[in-house]
């Protein structure tokens, strides 16, 4: 009997999801900083419903007095120690829980994984744990119980209110495409629909930000009059129209086409932003493996 249990344990170890190794590495790196007070796993890994495509959802509690500093350097930290292949996307999907969310695409052992980091001041961790049913994986016992810092809330609000730059919008498109691809592979049709709609909105916002930044608040309105006055604008709108008239439930093929359209219009409207991300985009293409490219 014990032999059977041992054998199954060995099999379980061999089949251990890679995301746990990714998480271990991240927790180990982040725990090196004394300002990190807690780390919680949330999402499918915490619920026990994860699969091989699941992202790693981590809430990172940071001492309130160090919160702003930590947010400011976390991209550099993700790039140098976590294997991020591009800057993190400021996550607009995650609920507001008093902190800031970022989605990173990180390379691990030849494959790309999605890392959702939610950075929160320590005083918000108890509420976040309750809300997300997060699973505590790290606690810095030396950190004590730091008091809230009144500077954190306005900093968070300012970050949430800041419009995304062209470079951040390109990263948003790449992250959304990554997420939609997972939905397609899993057959999650409703989420694929929702995120595909977001992708078209990202393309629109990118065009607005690059070509008509002062009228960004108009959203979908007045695009014709604001944008189509130049050849570049007209070409971008043609790409956008092709995206919004594509089937609302994407396939791998239509997703690949949408990605190409966004990158084409980004190159046309915001070439410097594309150039800054050129190596990241090429690495991303390698990992995305949309097999039925048109």
């Amino acid at each position: 009997m014990s032999t059977c249990t041992e054998a199954i344990d060995q099999l379980a170890a061999v089949n251990r999801p890679v995301q746990l190794a990714v998480m271990e590495r991240i927790v180990e790196h982040l725990a090196a900083g004394p300002a990190v007070t807690h780390m919680l796993v949330r999402g499918s890994i915490a619920r026990g419903t994860s699969d091989r495509l699941s992202d790693v959802d981590l809430v990172v509690g940071v001492a309130p007095t160090a919160f702003e500093e930590f947010v400011t350097v976390h991209d550099a930290l993700a790039s140098t120690t976590l294997g991020a292949i591009m800057p993190g996307w400021p996550d607009t999907i995650v609920p507001r829980m008093g902190g800031l969310g970022y989605v990173h695409l990180i390379e691990h052992d030849g494959r790309l994984y999605q890392l959702d980091l939610y950075l929160a001041p320590t005083d918000k961790i108890a509420a976040i744990t309750k809300l997300t049913r997060g699973h505590l994986v790290y606690r810095n016992d030396k950190a004590g119980d730091p008091a809230p810092d009144p500077a954190v809330a306005p900093f968070v609000e300012a970050r949430l209110a800041a419009p995304l730059t062209c470079e951040q919008l390109i990263v948003e498109a790449l992250v959304l495409t990554w997420m939609i691809h997972k939905r397609i592979l899993r057959g999650q049709r409703f989420m694929a629909y929702a995120e595909h709609h977001m992708l078209a909105t990202t393309a629109r916002t990118l065009i607005r930000t690059a070509l008509s930044p002062r009228n960004a608040f108009y959203g979908w309105y007045h695009l014709d009059t604001d944008i189509s006055v130049t050849p570049i604008g007209r070409s971008c709108l043609r790409d956008l129209e092709a995206m919004i008239t594509a089937p609302s439930l994407p396939t791998s093929g239509s997703l690949a086409a949408s990605l190409e359209r966004i990158l084409t219009l980004a190159h046309r409207a915001a070439p410097q932003a594309v150039d800054a991300l050129r190596l990241s985009i090429e690495a991303y293409r390698h990992h995305l493996e949309l097999t039925d490219l048109p």
Binding site: H29, A32, G33, P34, A35, A66, E69, F70, T72, V73, A76, L77, T80, T81
Partner: peptide, 12 residues
């Protein structure tokens, strides 16, 4: 880099 080091991430 200075911020990273001060936060305890000297190698980063």
């Amino acid at each position: 880099a200075l911020r990273l080091a001060q936060l305890g991430y000297a190698k980063a």
